[in-house]
């Protein structure tokens, strides 16, 4: 019976001290519960299947629609899920992560909500009311099958601990482990990935690998020989940063995303302003830079995250955007991907 065995000792959980039952301590409760169960002869999770009902707490959370749901029974049981923790006032890592997850969701298409479920759980219950979450969700144009949830701090801590995400030694209480937890409750498989992973690989994990390939994802994609192989792509610094940080919200010449299309941006705005906007957007907003505020308003309050980039890196990104923008004289569309434009 694993239901309580791991519970209180999981990860660093114990070091924070008991929270749900402060008077007794988790362990004691478990002992008691386990003992009662064993007396009653109640069978725990199936033998050798420790990561199920007995492991995940069936605690209450509230969805962005104000609905009460239970963590295990309603959210996890028999489902393939992607879970992250966020809070709406988080300016940098959360919007970036939400945007990355959006990419994964759009790659998965209809399967989100059908056999893959996304959960974003707030760690800031005071601010993140269901209404606040609903607004945030709307701003990011999140579709069906992706639920935002709020719960008491104890509850979100407990869930983070159970998923192995609770970080004990953070200086900033609002900092948190931004990892994604991907899992399939039915077959007991759980892994952790970075939100900055290649969205294609995250989508492949959720739709294919974690489901043991139960549904075909693509037709035969095997490359037969060198001749079919893509040519070498050497991503410059600008493209590297652009792809991992900017591309979640922006495109160059392919239309607006969560943020504006950046094609020709260097001709529309002062370079100095652009560089600063990339380097310290949060500061510009707090200084009430008129252009920054205008952007914020035009884009549904979605903040441009501060990724801690420096000036040279901002320049490299702008260089990449310039090179990728449609040419002004020929008007021909340039491919966003360098890889398509480098011949062998």
């Amino acid at each position: 019976m694993r239901r309580c065995n791991q519970s209180e000792d999981s990860g660093q959980g114990s070091r924070r001290g008991p929270r749900l039952f402060p008077a007794m301590g988790w362990k004691s409760v478990c002992i008691l519960v386990g003992f009662v169960l064993s007396l009653a002869g109640v069978s725990s999770a199936e033998k050798g299947r420790p990561w199920g009902e007995g492991y995940f707490p069936d605690v209450l959370l509230t969805t962005h629609e104000g609905k009460q749901v239970r963590f295990y029974q309603d959210l996890l049981k028999d489902k393939v899920v992607a879970i992250n923790f966020m809070f709406t006032s988080c300016e940098n890592v959360c919007p970036a992560e939400t945007a990355r997850l959006s990419q994964v969701a759009s790659l998965l298409g209809d399967r989100v909500g059908e056999d893959v479920h996304f959960y974003s759980i707030s760690i800031d219950p005071e601010v993140d009311t269901p209404e606040a979450l609903a607004r945030y969700r709307e701003r990011f144009d999140v579709g069906e099958g992706w639920t935002f949830l709020t719960a008491s701090r104890e509850t979100s801590d407990l869930i983070q601990r159970k998923l192995g995400l609770l970080v004990e030694e953070l200086d900033d209480p609002n900092d948190h482990d931004a990892s994604l937890v991907l899992g399939n409750e039915a077959n007991g498989r759980w892994i952790r990935r970075s939100p900055y992973d290649n969205p294609k690989s995250l989508a492949q994990l959720l739709a294919e690998s974690l489901q043991n390939g139960r549904r075909p994802t693509r037709a035969n994609r095997t490359l037969a020989s060198y001749a079919d192989a893509p040519s070498r792509s050497n991503w410059g610094k600008g493209e590297r940063i652009y792809r991992s940080r900017c591309a979640a919200c922006h495109t160059v010449g392919e239309g607006n995303g969560l943020g504006p299309d950046l094609a020709g941006i260097t001709q529309r705005r002062e370079r100095e302003w652009l560089v600063r906007w990339i380097v310290e957007p949060d500061l510009m907003i707090s200084e009430k830079d008129p252009d920054a505020l205008e952007l914020l308003q035009a884009w549904d309050d979605i903040r441009m995250p501060n990724f801690g980039l420096d000036q040279a890196e901002a320049e490299a990104i702008l260089g990449f955007i310039e090179r990728s923008s449609p040419s002004p004289s020929t008007g021909s569309e340039r491919s966003l991907s360098m890889r398509e434009s480098v011949g062998p």
Partner: peptide
């Protein structure tokens, strides 16, 4: 000048994704 692509293995075969430097 050519990069070895990245294998992605599934039940019905291995396909390749591009790699990048």
């Amino acid at each position: 000048v050519i990069l070895i692509p990245t294998p992605v293995a599934e039940w019905d075969g291995v396909f390749y994704e591009e790699s990048y430097l």
